[in-house]
Design a protein around this nucleic acid. Structure first.
Lengths: 329, 329
DNA sequence: CTGAAAGCGCTTACAG
DNA sequence: CTGAAAGCGCTTACAG
């Protein structure tokens, strides 16, 4: 391994000067600087970041924990964040917890041991014990935590999409197209926006919100099929991309044509939805990613206290061809 | 920051002993061990991995560079590799080069400065200069390099899918269904398998291979449309997932029904292809990922020389409902 | 503009 | 079974 001392010897300076040259630190005589750089290139030297991190007590490394490894949304966020962060000399350590809170806990411990500056994650809390150990760790850790997508901890900085606004937007779109019998499929946490849209129209939802939180794929498939057959909705609104995928399968297996037999709206946009001209509620992924990067960069200067903030982004409606005005009733 | 010295003081031992306790190193009196662990838990101490890495000259960190940030295939590989590696105490630093060879070069420099053990990447070579600087770096670096998916460097370990076998398999499948007029769309590097399948059937391809390497999405769209209209194939075989996506759009815009109007086969499997019952050539992603992990773990023991190896995996045919026997001619 | 010394938090011989 | 010392490769005062 080539160290600053090797360079120093060949360039006829001290390793202190080599270090300074690489950091553009204090003024160095231009000739000296050039000599150091030439020797370094020749030897293939670059400063050991591990040593530098240890000394400076700053790794310039961010830990990102992904809970839904299959969801392309996170690929996009990861891509964006890494690219921006890299420009500013940061590095990204990535881990997958597969939705398992114990696994997430271990990953956090490991990232902490790795002295990352920041941990970006979607807190997984299945019990108060989960909650407490996480909360206590976060309180005592010198690491900054950023909650992504969800935000169970109120006093910890979070960035997420306003899901209720999204479900409001979607429901309103369906209602304004004359659909009263809407089958909502998905996470109960999005029920508010749906109800709000009905209230605004001075209507009451004739069909019960179909809560599929925590259901397996198979169970979801059957629930959706049953609800579709029983409730005879004129429109379906599935409230996450994975559920949209299953819903499309059911519709297809039931030989129900979109949009002639039934209107279909998806929460979360995805490539296949675009391909099939299915209207969707999209998320400003890039805006969210950018703001996270800015937050992280802001930690560099604000040395001490950082006040927690919550930032939510509004989803938007992407009209394609899966929602038709309803003439049926 | 809590260090081993803090723990040592409270536990009434030396920090050397604390270090040993955490590494399960030499034998430590059970009581001493317990005391150390109790104190550590109380203080929330865990060994600083940066310091440990510096001292041991081993970061247990792998750098993964992703060239096609949009391709879900790499998400799968990343997920799998990270999960397996984590079990063995390794960490994953991820970067995106967006297909830009200079960016890739910078990332490699940065990963090297970060003392990663291994760099997994798809070499991006657009000129002999690209080739030479990469090759020279790899030769002189203490880091192990693993070529992923493609392998321009013969004497550097690589893991990839046998693309020509895949295109052979697909072409054969189409031919055996009576399709002679096959429109092949995609990377010219897959032409061999296609020709081999024709040869085996003692046929000559009536339609020219449509090489779209380096085309923009828009250009590809128009090329495919034109070829489809001009050549009147009975089957299309698009030789990468992004091209399958575009091909599907063209087919859809041309109102050509799959499989009644035309048979369709996709290289690279993806969720939306499954949803639409489109037959595909799949890749054993998990097998590839596992073997990469095993390779990395093997570096732990084999201290000195590692002999470069090439490992390719055979793609397989996934029959769904997009290929129909051809009765047209 | 440059250098010698100290130290970041560990681990590794060496010694007992 | 445990400790004191040295050192990993840097950076940071301190001094000149």
């Amino acid at each position: 391994m080539i160290t600053s001392k090797d360079v120093a010897k060949l360039a006829g300076v001290s390793h202190t000067t080599v270090s300074r040259a690489f950091r553009g630190d204090a003024k160095i005589k231009p000739e000296t600087y050039q000599r150091i750089m030439n020797v370094s290139k020749e030897l293939g030297y670059s400063p050991n970041r591990i040593a530098s991190s240890l000394r400076q007590k700053n790794t310039k490394t961010i830990g990102l924990i992904i809970s839904h490894g299959f969801n392309p949304l996170f690929l996009k966020i990861t891509h964006r964040i890494e690219t921006e962060l890299a420009i500013h000399g940061y590095h990204l350590l990535i881990s997958f917890d597969d939705g398992d809170s114990d696994k997430q806990w271990n990953i956090i411990q490991s990232l902490a041991a790795g002295q990352v500056n920041v941990i970006i994650f979607t807190p997984l809390i299945h019990s108060t014990a989960d909650h407490n150990r996480l909360y206590s760790l976060i309180q005592h850790s010198p690491i900054r935590f950023i909650q992504l997508i969800s935000n169970p901890f109120e006093d910890i900085t979070s960035f997420y999409f306003d899901d209720n606004y999204g479900s409001y937007l979607g429901t309103r779109h369906l209602l304004s197209n004359g659909h009263n019998r809407i089958l909502m499929i998905g996470g109960i946490n999005r029920v508010e926006g749906y109800e709000k849209a009905y209230q605004e129209s001075e209507l009451t939802p004739p069909i019960k919100f179909s809560d599929l939180t925590g259901s397996t794929e198979e169970a979801s498939y059957h629930n959706i099929k049953e609800a579709l057959l029983k409730e005879k909705p004129t429109a379906v609104f599935s409230v996450s991309e994975p559920l949209s995928y299953i819903t499309y399968q059911v519709l297809s297996d039931l030989a129900m044509q979109i949009p002639s037999d039934i209107s279909f709206l998806s929460f979360d946009d995805e490539r296949w939805l675009q391909l099939l001209h299915i209207s969707a509620i999209g998320h400003p992924v890039q805006a969210l990613s950018n703001v996270i990067v800015r937050e992280i960069l802001s930690y560099e200067t604000s040395d001490s206290e950082v006040y927690p903030s919550s930032t939510s982004f509004k989803p938007f409606l992407i009209e394609r061809n899966s929602v038709l005005p309803n003439n049926k009733q």
